[in-house]
């Protein structure tokens, strides 16, 4: 009895949050999934249970294939680019550099800006006009004699999504840098020194002493970038609107809900987005909570 009295007040205090999370996160995820399994393809019909039909039939739609391919290209370029650039910036800074605070502040400031504002300036920079009509980066390339670098950017049929990843890299690599910098600084200096005394070259010190320390940070960065990437929406809308040429699942879902007025289809796409994130986030959360306990 006394033990119950000891923890009951705590439970009561968090009850509002528990209810909110239960309803708004888990309840609504379930509700959405359930909606995806009905034939409610307009806003008035009741919606009969049709099992996984929508999940299967979505693959018959060319637009779905396009948006999935786009998401894959975007994710690879964005996650890879931000990880490499963020690591490089941290690597260049980790041994100390004059004015480190200023460098850090400037690399990081894009994080404080909305994807919409970022999208607006990058849409200008990545304008597809060339030569006479060129503005943005194409004009810059043209005027410094690098005119062969001009291309259609995000309007390119095949690699447009790689261009779309550039503003996202601009925005997020400072964050990755900060994570890696914290990782580098977490390596005890004595360990490096000891390895050097043992005759290790700087490369070996990095490979065998520093790198293992960076593993958890790299994993965190991967998870964060990955889940941002798979649900990317604002940036795409701000750069190119709802055009097919830059379609991704999140934009397709928006169109399904607001333009096609097809809740079941929107819910199906949303379920796929959730599943794509859950397959790597759930194991990661379980792993990191376990690790914290030890």
């Amino acid at each position: 009895m006394t033990r119950v009295r000891r923890w009951l007040p705590g439970l009561l205090l968090v009850t509002p949050s528990i209810v909110a999370i239960a309803v708004f996160v888990y309840g609504m995820l379930g509700w959405n999934f359930q909606l995806a399994m009905t034939d409610k393809h307009d806003e008035i019909s009741e919606g009969k249970f049709v099992g996984l039909t929508n999940f299967v039939e979505l693959w018959d739609q060319p637009r779905w294939h396009i948006s999935v391919n786009h998401a894959i290209v975007f994710t690879l370029v964005f996650v890879g680019g931000a990880l490499v650039l963020g690591w490089l910036l941290a690597f260049l800074m980790e041994k100390g550099i004059k004015g480190e605070g200023t460098f850090r502040a400037i690399y990081l400031f894009p994080m404080a800006i909305s994807f919409v504002a970022t999208g607006i300036v990058w849409r200008w920079l990545m304008n597809s006009g060339q030569d006479e009509r060129a503005v943005g980066l194409n004009r810059l390339f043209d005027s410094i004699g690098l005119d062969f670098l001009q291309w259609e950017w995000f309007r390119n049929q095949d690699w447009g999504m790689a261009a779309m990843a550039i503003p996202a890299i601009w925005q997020m690599s400072g964050y990755v840098m900060a994570l890696f910098l914290a990782g580098f600084r977490g390596v005890p200096e004595e360990l490096r020194e000891a390895a050097r005394v043992d005759g290790c070259t700087e490369w070996k010190v990095y490979r065998y002493v520093v790198l293992p320390f960076l593993r958890p940070v790299t994993l965190s960065a991967l998870i964060i970038l990955g889940h941002i990437s798979l649900k990317v929406f604002d940036l795409i809308v701000a750069v190119s609107g709802k055009q097919i040429i830059t379609d991704v699942p999140a934009v397709f879902m928006w169109v399904a809900v607001f333009d096609s007025h097809d809740p079941a289809k929107g819910a199906t796409i949303a379920s796929y987005i959730v599943l794509s994130v859950a397959v790597f986030v759930v194991p990661y959360l379980i792993w990191s909570v376990r690790r914290e306990k030890h």
Binding site: W7, G10, L13, V25, M28, N32, F233, A270, I286, K293
Partner: peptide
Amino acid sequence: KWRFPGSDLLFTLFLFGMFIPYQGVMIPL
């Protein structure tokens, strides 16, 4: 500081809410 039975599990369940793509709750919301 005022844990109760199952509070660690609860915390993990909370954390997942941090990563969900909001698209997945938008239509019911």
